[in-house]
Design a protein around this nucleic acid. Structure first.
Length: 483
RNA sequence: GCGGAAGUAGCUCAUUUGGUAGAGCGAUAGCCUUCCAAGCUAUAGGUGGCCGGUUCGAGCCCGGUCUUCCGCUCCA
């Protein structure tokens, strides 16, 4: 099986051709950086999500799952810092491609001119900023002939507000300024439910809350297929720990999460850690688990030690006490008592994980047949436990009672896992179609089946086949899919 | 967001200087077939990304727009 190719463009085409990923609203020319999952993709994505969910909740007694709403009280985003930190008007210089915050640009200029004129300028700027008068700000910059410090030109774009968060209005009347944001991260839904879950679930620290769900970011540049989308799905878990033990848990999750990625078939050499040098305002340690995508090493999952920043902020903004009473005894034999727990977060992008699996699975194979002619196939070597369809049931011929036997087997197998039945076209063609969508097993019903109830099972990855009793099919497939 | 390039059937492409679109593969239906994209027959599928302009006439020229790709920039 030589000449394996792994080209990103081909992967994208293949995803479309076989019903994995479509561009959103393609009928209307598409919507930039938004994608839909097709009939195959939706199932693969669900299988990934289910495996993660199981690994977090079912396999950890001290982690529970929730499903928080996308809409949240607007104050949540003030407390989290999202409103204040990421909504400043910006302007670009077209010659240097340098982007400036408008207020910084004007303030810097004001310091270079006479003080009274500078003060007047800043006062004018603040009035315009308060009114969100972007045209006025542009005019102000032009009238003062403010130049870019790099290109020394005044060739500016329009002033724009780069707001990370999408917003809409709640209620039937928009006038109340009840602006609601689509969450830019799922984490806050966990933090605001910390007390609910801890009390009703009688959770003892350390414990975790897991959640999967959509998040929305109005990215300025969103490219590279489903790697960076405006609407995407996160799978994350916030682990609440006693202050001072966060590094211990940070290291535990760093290790545990990488092992999980390996458990779904990602080779170790394609994964690496990347420690953050510059930390976000809430973190005391952070790293990415990176995967070597076809376009380079990129973040797949983030592990952040978020300290008590989030819970403290929500306590402050809600004016409610968000603490935990720890009855465990410390070295002096006294309870640890009340404290605000620290948080270690694991946050993986489900769409990125999907892309990871797809780009590892996609392979073009070429070989020389026994008669000397060339042959080839495109195969998706998706691990059996993740594959959207587990088994194809194929009568060798469309007559002699073979379809009847195959249909009976189909009826039985579909109770256990996703199957696909096909009697059209030559057997080789059907095998290739199953290769293309990543079905790991095909069983073929032939004339011998009528004699002794055996079938041939054909393995996707090796293209080899063997004869097994028909009664063994379900057990064999289930075993392979639950590894 | 800035600069550059591209857009014709599901896919890959053709259509000599403007004269209202074709092929291969694929798909669907049938025939034939005893295990890796075989063969035969038939059918479906395009207002040439979209809008406008020039022209007697535009897939082809011009403008705008949308989407994609490449480079730069950004990514809490």
């Amino acid at each position: 099986m030589a000449n394996e190719v792994n080209n990103f463009q081909e992967i994208i085409s293949h995803c479309k051709e076989y019903g994995y990923v479509f561009q959103s609203s393609e009928l209307y020319d598409g919507l930039s950086a938004v994608y839909d999952y097709g009939q195959m993709g939706a199932q693969l994505k669900k299988n990934l999500r289910d495996d993660w969910w199981k690994s977090m909740t079912q396999l950890h007694e001290n982690i529970v799952g929730i499903d928080a709403a996308i809409f949240m009280h607007p104050t949540v985003w003030k407390a989290s810092g999202h409103v204040d930190n990421f909504s400043d008007p910006m302007i670009d210089n077209k010659d240097s491609n340098k982007r400036y915050r408008v207020d910084h640009l004007i303030e810097a200029f004001a310091e270079t001119i006479e003080k009274s004129a500078g003060d007047a300028l800043i006062q004018e700027m603040e009035q315009l900023l308060a009114k969100d008068d972007f045209n006025g700000l542009k005019t102000l910059i032009e009238n003062n002939k403010i130049k870019c410090s790099i290109s020394k030109t005044s060739n500016w774009t329009e002033v724009r507000q780069f707001n990370l968060m999408f917003s809409t209005q709640i209620g039937s009347v928009a006038e109340e300024a009840d602006t609601i944001y689509l969450r830019p991260e799922t984490a806050q839904g966990i933090f605001v439910n910390f007390l609910n879950v801890q009390k009703t679930g009688r959770m003892k620290i350390p414990f975790g809350i897991a959640q999967t769900g959509k998040a929305f970011r109005n990215e300025i540049v969103a490219r590279q297929f489903i790697f960076r989308m405006r609407e995407f799905e996160q799978m994350e878990m916030q682990f609440f720990v006693r202050p001072g033990t966060q590094m211990e848990w940070y290291n535990y999750w760093k290790d545990t999460r990488k092992k999980w990625h390996e458990s779904i078939g990602i080779p170790t050499e394609k994964l690496r850690y990347h420690d953050h040098v510059k930390l976000a305002h809430y973190a005391d340690a952070a790293l990415d688990i990176e995967f070597e995508f076809p376009f380079g090493w990129k973040e797949l999952e983030g592990i952040h030690s978020r300290t008590d920043f989030d819970l403290s902020q929500h306590a402050k903004y809600s004016k409610k006490k968000i603490q935990y009473f720890d009855n465990d005894l410390n070295e002096e034999g006294k309870p640890f008592g009340n404290y605000t727990p620290f948080v270690v977060e694991t946050s993986v992008g489900l769409d990125r994980l999907f892309l990871t699996v797809i780009s590892l699975a996609y392979q073009e194979e070429k070989w020389t047949k026994e008669d000397g002619t060339e042959d080839s196939r495109v195969v998706m070597k998706i691990p059996a436990k993740l594959a959207p369809t587990k088994l194809a049931i194929l009568p060798l011929l469309k007559k002699d009672g073979l379809p009847e036997i195959a249909t009976e087997l189909m009826k039985e197998c579909k109770q256990h896992f996703h199957c696909f039945y096909e009697e059209k076209d030559a057997i080789g063609k059907r095998y290739r179609r199953m290769d293309a969508i990543g079905t790991p097993f095909c069983v073929t019903i032939d004339h011998q089946t009528k004699e002794d109830n055996t079938v041939t099972i054909r393995y996707r990855d090796t293209m080899t086949q063997e004869r097994i009793p028909m009664s063994e099919v379900i057990r064999l497939v289930e075993k392979a899919c639950n590894v």
